[in-house]
Nucleic acid binder design. Sequence first.
DNA 1: GTGAAAGCGCTAACAA
DNA 2: TTGTTAGCGCTTTCAC
Lengths: 368, 368
Amino acid sequence: MVRFFCVSATACIKVFIFIYIYKNFLELLLTVAKKTTIYDIAKELNITVSTVSRALNNISSISDSTREAVVAMAKKMNYRPNKVASSLTSGKTYIIGVIVPSAQIHFFATVVHALEKYLKRFGYSIILYQSNESLESEQRGVDTLLEAQVDGIIASLSLETDEVSHFEKVKEEGKPLLIFDRTHDLLRSPSVTIDDEYAGYMATKHLIDQGYRKIAYITTTHQIKIFQERYAGYQRAIKEAKLKLRPEFIILGDLSVDGGFIGTNQLLQEKDRPDAIIGGDDFVALGIIKALHKHEITPPTIGVIGFANQSFSEHIIPSLTTIDQQAVQMGNECAKLFLKLLDKSKAIAPDEQVVLTPLLLERESTKK
Amino acid sequence: MVRFFCVSATACIKVFIFIYIYKNFLELLLTVAKKTTIYDIAKELNITVSTVSRALNNISSISDSTREAVVAMAKKMNYRPNKVASSLTSGKTYIIGVIVPSAQIHFFATVVHALEKYLKRFGYSIILYQSNESLESEQRGVDTLLEAQVDGIIASLSLETDEVSHFEKVKEEGKPLLIFDRTHDLLRSPSVTIDDEYAGYMATKHLIDQGYRKIAYITTTHQIKIFQERYAGYQRAIKEAKLKLRPEFIILGDLSVDGGFIGTNQLLQEKDRPDAIIGGDDFVALGIIKALHKHEITPPTIGVIGFANQSFSEHIIPSLTTIDQQAVQMGNECAKLFLKLLDKSKAIAPDEQVVLTPLLLERESTKK
DNA sequence: GTGAAAGCGCTAACAA
DNA sequence: TTGTTAGCGCTTTCAC
């Protein structure tokens, strides 16, 4: 096409000039068709913007007639409120920042799912920020969210997070901060967690009740509170049942299928083998089952239990007994508590701590 | 404590007055400690806000000395830019709206994960909105995001979505719209998808190559394009191999473990049983394996293949052959394309369509 | 290279 | 019940 016109250099230039003007004209058109504001509505109705604002926000002291007129005109003119502008004056964005280690981890995806679903009902949106298990990224996340003027932050700490000063900034700005699941002792703030000590206790106790006596535990090297707590619960149950706490039955490794697999192979080399193995999470438990399968052992011959109730746990063969982490409930509790924190009319409550109770799901892998 | 002071009614009132004043004083303190703005920096440095703004945004025509002074002062005064204010003037929020059916679905969680990770590097945040497979909610999502003045929207359609006018609004506002995975014929917009027809073909072809001849298919009743496409690919492979396309081998049901379980039981009642079964997704495939297990059949005796490469597929026994949906790659491609769309300097490209190639992951369930 | 000034679209006193 | 007015904190012309 262009080549068709370009019979000479001048013609070619003309074409380009034409294109240039045309382009600007198009842009002009786009610019002219700008969005309608409350100001436009006001002009159309011969009232002032404040009246329009009040009508639209359904604020008291507005006559039905004008409110209806405004609403009708707004619809007619295809008006869409600009939250950015209203945020600037009101100081509220109705956006909540959510920091999680990774949306790819099923537990966090589920919490985020529940959070968003719940908060939406109250007019809040969420900005999602992933720390990807990095402290530095988590710090940047807090900055990013505060710059975006979020109304508050809900976060679960990265594995790396060993200092929490970046979260203090949130409180300094007078904005609510809520920590869930992965907390930190130095961080005084409202939180929603699950009783991990009890989860560990529950898992171990269940095995004991099923008649298992030599219970091994494959967990992570990471010094995260929740894993330490689970281990503490394990110890408590073992002691309570007056069983021996054998160091050779505690395997530290990766929190993964491979971790479970390797750990199990190691355990099976003991001359006095365990008769049950607890996995640090369901993936570890899956690795345990795989390793047992390789040795032609099928649970519940050796009992296996996991943590987290992954979507597959119910369906593998044998189905996996596990401790449910109540992700949906945790999301809902977070949302509920957070809305309470946002409502500053209520007294500045001492940091409220919600602790959920884990749930034992008995399935085939421990059913003797 | 209070009771201690309240020896008389007047004393009591005094106490309350004291508390009241004290409270106001506290509030005053909080109010006074307001955030520093570029105006404060300007005053401190005896320059104007425009200079500060330019220095902070590292805009040309600013002397090194003043820029350094401003930056130093900003740090000293603990300045934090207010993106809401800058958005109001600049018209850009650096926030992108992401609409997915549910963050709880692993595929979408992974795409969101990749998206956020990628876009963050370019200064963008994302607001997450879940349609929860509801058209109405999806429509509200578009409105919410546009009101929040997002710079554009990336979306994957809900199962219910049979009309797409709500997405036209996005384009009307001159904002980029990108649809991924679940698209709609009526919606003309850039998209990132996977070649589902080929995925179906690939799965079927693989089974045929492995020597299976009587291949059944358990899929969903939902009229979603991607499932229809996979089925089309199945048909193509069957025809190409000159096999019979048997209606009794096509089971429509739920896309779930139960759906696979029920469908398989039905298939096994045929006098001429299939020797391989394709599941509409990995959960269906899991149900298939469970049902076969009940009948004491273990794949690959009857071959089983799924779609999506869920996290468990690799680890169940037998491990599941599946077609990977390239979720991470899809997220990355979406981000990449979207950044291109945001960069309007580039010509208004005709709706670009990125089509990813699915990936066959051969595992035990089909390894004859 | 810097300053002055006009908004962006809306809210929220304070008046009337 | 409605209008007037002054910003919210920042960007961005247009001068100088």
